[in-house]
Structure formats: C-alpha cells, structure tokens
C-alpha cells in the first residue's frame, strides 16, 4: 500500500500541485495581511490610541450603531457585540496583535471557501485526470485490485489535505510573523460561547491559551477540508470531466455561503453539508445558520456526507467499465 501511496504522491508532486497551492496561499495571504494592517491603522487613526480596550469599546459602539440597519444579520451582530462586551468586561484582549491572532482570524475566514477551493485543486482531478489522460487503463490493468487502487488514492488525498494545511499553516505563520510580530501565543482566548434565541449563552465559556485555540481551529479546518476533499473525490469518480466536477463543487460551496445567511427559517437546510462548513464559528461563538445547530451536529452531518460520498465513490469505481 505504501508504494501505491508513494506513486500517487509522486504524481501530485510531478504536477507541482503543492507549489501551486502554496503560491495561491501566499498571494492571498499578502492581500489579507495588508488589509488587516490597513484596518487596524484606520481605527487607530480615528481614535488616536493603541489601547485595545478603547478600540474594542469603539468597535462595540460602532456595531450598536449598525444594529438598526443590519437586517437579517441583526441577531448575529448582536451576539457578536455581546461577546465583545464579555471580552471587555473580563479584560481580555480578543485580538492581541501578533501572528497568532492573525492566523486565528485568517483560518476562520478561509474554512468555508478558500481552503475547500484549494483542496479541490488536488481532489477534483484525482480520478478524472487519469481518465482524461488515458492512464486509467494502465492503472487498472496492474495486479492490484481496484479497491486498493482507489484506497491508495483516497489515502493520498487525506495526506494531501494534511499537507495543504501544513503549507497553509507555515505560510500564514511566516508571513504574519514578519508583518505583525510573533507575540501572543499564550494570550488567553475565550471559547465555548453559544447562542440561544439571539442571546449569548456564556455558561460554558472557558479560557484557553491562543495556541490551543489555533490547534483546535486547524483540527476543524482539516476536518472540513477532508469532507470537501472526499466529496470532490467522489465527483471525480462519477464525472468524467474535471471541470464539470469542480463546477458542481464550487456551485455547492457558493450556494452554501449564500444559504448560511438566509436559511434561518428553512429548518431542514441544516442537513445540507454546505450549510455546515462554518464549524469554526462554533468555537468563536457566532450564531449558527439555523437555530439549534451545534458543533457536534455539524461534524456529524459532515461525517455522514463524507461516508456516503466515499461509499458511492468506491461502489462506482469498482463496478464501472472503462472505455
């Protein structure tokens, strides 16, 4: 099995997939980091201080002013504000300047769309490219069962997802450490917020060091990426054309991003995988798209989708005639 996985990895490296992923991350990262510096600069300019309490207080007030015309996001904003107030009341800086805070925010913003897109670059053509190259004929006429061939591909996907997380983590760290300094790994962060009917529930709030929080975030991001990877992988088996497979997946992701903002009244939408991608939000304590969704619920929904996808992929791959 190891030699099969090593084969698959050879192909990924041969196609410079990881380098491409790395470049994309680097470019986007620079944009984000620049935007971040600009943003904090403008706040600083407005209130003329670098006292985080004053900054946070200003943010809360700004938020309160936006509440009246926040429309459907009102509830979410409200909870966000209550949370900020909680940080302020407990004298904990929610955004201690430095690389770790940037990583935390960047990761939270990239799990729903950016990371899945990167994963798709690897996963979406894992099988379909073999078919378009014609190499599938060679692959399937080895003395290796189809099950093992696909399994090795899937395990390689798991490894690649991890590799992308590693590249992502390393690059975000490197770039943000240069731009924002390397402080704040042990800064306290609050986690365990939840919301109940538009009100912040603080009964389970805990204080953890930032590095642990980031580790949790990476765990969740990895999980989401893996689920997206698995589904793209399935599409790659089902659909001949890589482009079509990617298109389907992107459509799902985008519809998920849209749906997450408007399904609060469509209860059963919570069983769609794309509505459940924002798992890091639970860590943060932002209100879920549909009332009553919890971290374990979302993880479970994603798991079910991934397993179903995997079973479909294997069933089809093992039965399908290759022309």
């Amino acid at each position: 099995m190891y030699s099969l996985i090593s084969n698959e990895m050879t192909k990924l490296i041969g196609r410079r997939k990881f380098i491409m992923v790395g470049l994309i991350i680097a470019v986007l990262l620079c944009l984000f980091a620049y935007a971040q510096t600009k943003q904090s600069e403008s706040i600083r300019e407005r209130i003329g201080t670098s006292d985080w309490r004053q900054e946070l207080q200003q943010q809360i007030i700004d938020g309160q002013n936006r509440l009246s015309n926040a429309g459907p996001w009102r509830e979410q904003l409200q909870i966000r504000l209550q949370q900020m107030q909680y940080y302020l009341d407990h004298d904990i800086n929610p955004s201690q300047p430095g690389a770790p805070t940037f990583i935390r925010g960047f990761l939270e913003n990239s799990t729903e769309l950016f990371l899945p897109l990167l994963i798709m670059m690897v996963a979406a053509d894992m099988v379909s490219s073999e078919r378009s190259l014609g190499t599938i004929k060679l692959l399937l006429t080895r003395p290796v069962s189809r099950f093992r061939v696909l399994l090795s591909k899937y395990l390689t996907l798991v490894l690649s997802v991890s590799m992308i997380m590693l590249i992502y983590g390393f690059l975000t760290f490197a770039i943000s450490a240069i731009m924002f300094g390397n402080d704040g790994w042990t800064a306290p962060v609050l986690t365990g917020f939840s919301s109940q009917g538009g009100e912040l529930d603080i009964s389970a709030v805990r204080l953890i060091p930032q590095w642990q929080y980031i580790l949790h975030e990476f765990g969740l991001a990895w999980y989401v990426s893996l689920v997206i990877g698995t589904l793209s992988f399935m599409l790659s088996v089902l659909i001949r054309s890589t482009a079509a497979g990617m298109g389907v997946m992107i459509a799902c992701l985008i519809s998920g991003a849209i749906l997450s903002n408007m399904v609060s009244s469509w209860e059963s939408a919570k069983y769609l995988f794309m509505v459940n991608l924002g798992v890091i939000g639970y860590l943060e304590g932002s209100s879920p798209p549909v009332e009553g969704m919890t971290l374990s619920f979302s993880l479970l929904v994603l798991l079910v989708w991934a397993i179903a996808g995997l079973i479909t992929a294997f069933a089809v791959f093992m039965k399908k005639d290759v022309y």
Partner: peptide, 14 residues
Amino acid sequence: SAAACLLCLTGLGW
C-alpha cells in the same frame, strides 16, 4: 503530511 495529519487530528480530538 502524515505528521500534519496527526497534528490536526490532535487539535480536533482535543
């Protein structure tokens, strides 16, 4: 990759 995988699993498991 395997090491990264373990690390992410640790984060999730924890």
